[in-house]
Design a protein around this nucleic acid. Structure first.
Lengths: 166, 166
DNA sequence: GGTTATCCATCAATGCATTGCCATATCGCT
DNA sequence: AGCGATATGGCAATGCATTGATGGATAACC
């Protein structure tokens, strides 16, 4: 009873915090998909499709598009998963897979179609409203802080997913 | 060119931060399931089953169990989803659905079986190692900070999911 | 006793996400 | 020309997660 409990309690407290932290991550992610999909459902889209369209709409990617490999790296999902999402987006006419003329023949560049660019423009309003609503009680500093912490956690988990260095 | 750009740039910066923030949330969640399931795959479990077992293993819940409704509130998932997870856990013999003798006849209490308690005890080692590895670069203060920010975000998203008060 | 509400389960559909394996086309190197 | 690596696609299986609709058993109220 005379041992210092201050250090003894450190590990259990950290475990407990980790437990709560990952439960919140799990819950927040589920809610993100649930509410996010609802926010863009008027366009027949989902949060994943929103993420893909958002990646392709960036100035860097809009003209030349992104290869499947680059999209996988950007979103950090499996190739088989991305293929299915791209199939749905292609069927909807929002995205096209093209072979760049002069480039590597193996590469397929995924690009927004004119329709895809138009729909993305319409979706932007809903997305802005969604972000504003979801982060209503957050100061800009807190947003940055949360981003940075999530960024580090993502990095840590990515390291666990791929032990061998790239 | 003489208008104060400081305020004009606030909204775009916030939008950009939100964009990155939710992408990180999306990525971190996918990696959580990927690496987490790998961590407990030796027990034939997944992260969701881990979450359910963890909820039921808490001292508060271990003896009397939790009703399906309580589990839904704790994990914040849909009833149909939870039913499927519970079915798999019941088939694996880790969980049992019982009707409490004196209580409301509509309620089903979900409880860990003896086997479930044993397996959870074994899983705890892997889980502790997982938490330690995932949060390796984080100070205890940062863990708490991330938890609190995620908790607020979860609350905000939950409000968006259920507009009418409970 | 009858109505209404709650708790739980079921069936069905869609989409996301992973793993594993196989196939094809192209590139780069020898 | 051949060989290995890379980039993509296809197929299959499993599990998670949502929505929607239906139904049954129990409780609470009138």
């Amino acid at each position: 009873m005379d041992n210092p409990t201050q250090r003894m309690d450190e590990a259990p407290a950290r475990f407990d915090t980790a437990n709560r932290l990952f439960l919140r991550l799990y819950q927040a992610s589920n809610l993100l998909h649930k509410t996010g999909t609802r926010a863009v459902s008027a366009y027949g889209a989902t949060t994943q499709q929103w993420a893909v369209l958002g990646a392709l709409a960036r100035p860097v990617a809009h003209d030349r598009g992104l290869t499947v490999k680059e999209l996988i790296a950007f979103l950090m999902v499996s190739r088989q998963n991305l293929t299915a999402v791209l199939d749905r987006l292609e069927t909807a006419g929002l995205v096209e897979r093209i072979r760049a003329p002069g480039a590597d023949g193996r590469l397929r560049h995924v690009r927004l179609t004119a329709e895809g660019t138009r729909v993305w423009g319409e979706m932007l309003g809903s997305i802005r409203r969604y972000y504003a609503s979801a982060l209503e009680g957050f100061s800009t500093e807190e947003c940055v802080q949360l981003f940075q912490l999530l960024d580090r956690l993502r990095g840590s988990l990515a390291r666990m997913a791929e032990p061998e260095g790239e």
